[in-house]
Every structure is written in structure tokens, then in C-alpha cells.
Amino acid sequence: MPNPSKISNDDPAAVSGRDHVASGTDAPIVQLQEAVSLIGQFPALAGVNLVVGPGEVVLIRGPNGAGKSTLLRLCSGLASLTSGAGRILGHDISDRAGRRAVRREVGLLGHATSLYDELTVEQNIRFWVGANRSDETMVEPVMHRFGLDGRLRSVRVAGLSAGQRRRTAMAIVVCRRPSLWLLDEPHSGLDEDGRTLVDDLVVQAAQSGATVLIASHEVDRVSELAARTVVIAGGRVHTGEQLGDSTDAS
């Protein structure tokens, strides 16, 4: 479980959101109204209403195929909004320019790790840090924090275990310093140390003012991190539960 007291904001590998989030504006980070998103002809999201404020950590849970991953992709600017209205980080995602603007400010850890098998761990991280225009001085401390600075540094990604791939992908997300973290089953494939590391990152991200949405089936574990739980089924948000009580979010 996370131990925020262990996390120092002086740590160069510490998680932090970008400046506009830390500046203290109260405008919602995620604001969806009757949002519909199609995968082909199938409405993966069929009228979602959701508001998430700055610095919130929200658990999104629901059965397989409920629309959790599509909701995260919509919030990342990758999936398009077919109907309804949506603003993410202040950008209108109903148009392409808005979605492009959102993409630069979010960190998405999906089922895919987006790593190149033929490159080493370090080459992958340095490529994505360059592509994301992240701070290159973060590479070494972040690799150290994720246990990627030793023997693994020069190992090709094709030779990594699923958990090591996940750590590498997570390190890249940390280097992005996103304002909105979108984590899809972030504990999947990780050992206990890795799972604790993820928990610490979530706590630290929230402390720095970033907003975190976590889609997970590990309800007990993530509930300890999240201030709120959103239940999604059949492409719609059914309930939003504050910890300790239950309210309708939609």
C-alpha cells in the first residue's frame, strides 16, 4: 500500500503535474455530458456524464467490455466524441484541434506498452522522452526509481518480462509529467514491489495537483487510493460513490 510519507518532492524522479494544474484553478479537468464514442458502429460509450475535478483520484470500475478503456481513450484525446459534449483539461474534444491539445498533456498507460521490441530499455525511454519533449535530466533518476538502471538498461525490450515492460512504460509516463493520468489496469503483471510503486506514484501525482483516473478490477487496492469510485456498465456511468457514502454521478 502507498506510503506518502516516503515520497519526497525533492526527489528528481518525483511525480509532478504541469504548471497550470498546480496553479490552483478549480475548473473541472474532465467534463463529459451525454458523451457517445463509437468503435466502428458499436457505441462503446453510450451517453456518459462525468465530472472530475483537479487533483482527484477516481477509480473507474465495471465488468469487461463496459467501456472503461474507451472512456480513458476518450479522455486522452485518442477516441473521438461522436455526440454529446466534452472538455478535457479545458480543451473541447469535439474537434480535432482540441483532441490534439489534450494528447500532449495526458499520460496514458493502456493495455499496450508502446515499446519497440528491438530497442533497449534505455533507448526506448530516451526516444519517448525526446518525442514527448520531456525533461531529459529526469531519465536517469526515473530509471533508477523503477529499477531499470542496472542490468536491464541495455536489455532489449523483447527480452523483458511483462512486469518489466510495464515498469518501462510507467517510467515513460512519469517522465511526461502529465496533468491527467489515465491508468488502465496499472497493477496488471506487476510483482508486489511494482504494485506498491504504482500506488506511490498515484498518491504522489495527486499530491502534486494532477488528476488520476484508474480503470481497475482491483477494487480493494485502488479504493484506498481513490477519493471516489465511478461504476460504468453498458457504456454508461451508473453510479459515483464517494468513499463512505453513495451518490449519483450521472
Binding site: 486522452s76 484525446g77 485518442l78 494528447r103 500532449r104 493502456g110 499496450a112 508502446s114 521490441d117 514527448n132
Partner: peptide, 13 residues
């Protein structure tokens, strides 16, 4: 193969 096209778009290249 591993969702890299999405990551290229997210990178804002």
C-alpha cells in the same frame, strides 16, 4: 504491434 501509433499521437509529434 504494441500500440505505438497511439503513443506517437500522444507524444504530440
Amino acid at each position: 504491434d504494441d500500440g505505438n501509433l497511439d503513443a506517437l499521437q500522444l507524444a504530440g509529434l
